[in-house]
Design a protein around this nucleic acid. Sequence first.
DNA 1: CGGCATCCCGCTAGATACTG
DNA 2: CAGTATCTAGCGGGATGCCG
Lengths: 135, 135
Amino acid sequence: MSQRNTRVTVQVVNADACPVREVLDRVSGKWSVQILVAAAHGPIRFTELERSIEGISRRMLTLTLRNLERDGLITRTVHPTVPPKVEYELTPVARELHETLQRLTNWAERNRVYIAESRAAYDEEHRPDGAGADA
Amino acid sequence: MSQRNTRVTVQVVNADACPVREVLDRVSGKWSVQILVAAAHGPIRFTELERSIEGISRRMLTLTLRNLERDGLITRTVHPTVPPKVEYELTPVARELHETLQRLTNWAERNRVYIAESRAAYDEEHRPDGAGADA
DNA sequence: CGGCATCCCGCTAGATACTG
DNA sequence: CAGTATCTAGCGGGATGCCG
């Protein structure tokens, strides 16, 4: 019992060293991914983004855009015309991310029904009404 | 059919039309992914999870576990022994998700430096000190 | 057109304490 | 060992208003 402790396999998933958290932090915002998706088709203007993403506010659009720009995921191009025109475009790095994101989307679509049913079953089973077994 | 005017004024589209949000909601929690990763190696006990995920609280571990179980992503097996023993394991669906997640992780690892540099450059450029060009 | 500032609220998650 | 309950802070993000 001197040197051999019982914890054999417990590999620490340290948050600091965990790239999973890295990417999640990049994507965790409510609107980040939708912006990436909306901008994936090519350069897009501020107002176009605003209109294509239902429910987003100017504020959140700006903030999220700034963050994505800061992370080098989108470029911001200002055209100094009289009606201001600003175009946003994905960087190559963001395009790679977008491809990966699409795999996630595919997963979601494939298993959407399964998840919904799981939820329903779980909720049913945990009803306060006491429908634990069956009726 | 005549009075189909159910005022579903909810402009939010319920995430039904947006699979991106679907998967993000599933993964958005601060600890969800790390739990999935930690449990990916095989059945794992509550305390093992708690120790392998640095910084997680009992509360959040339980809550996140419950949500993952509810979504059908993990199974919870209670062994009615005298010291209680509960094992958690990924469902097949979650294993698929985990694979996809690993692609995300790969992306993060590949571009971690790029992102860090982008951030540094952005922060430098937007310093209140006015170091816009160069020194 | 594009964007920033302010106020405000709800949700997430941390700390702490108790239980079967 | 494996949870549950409460209380609270912090932050994301919605609403609104003003500016280049």
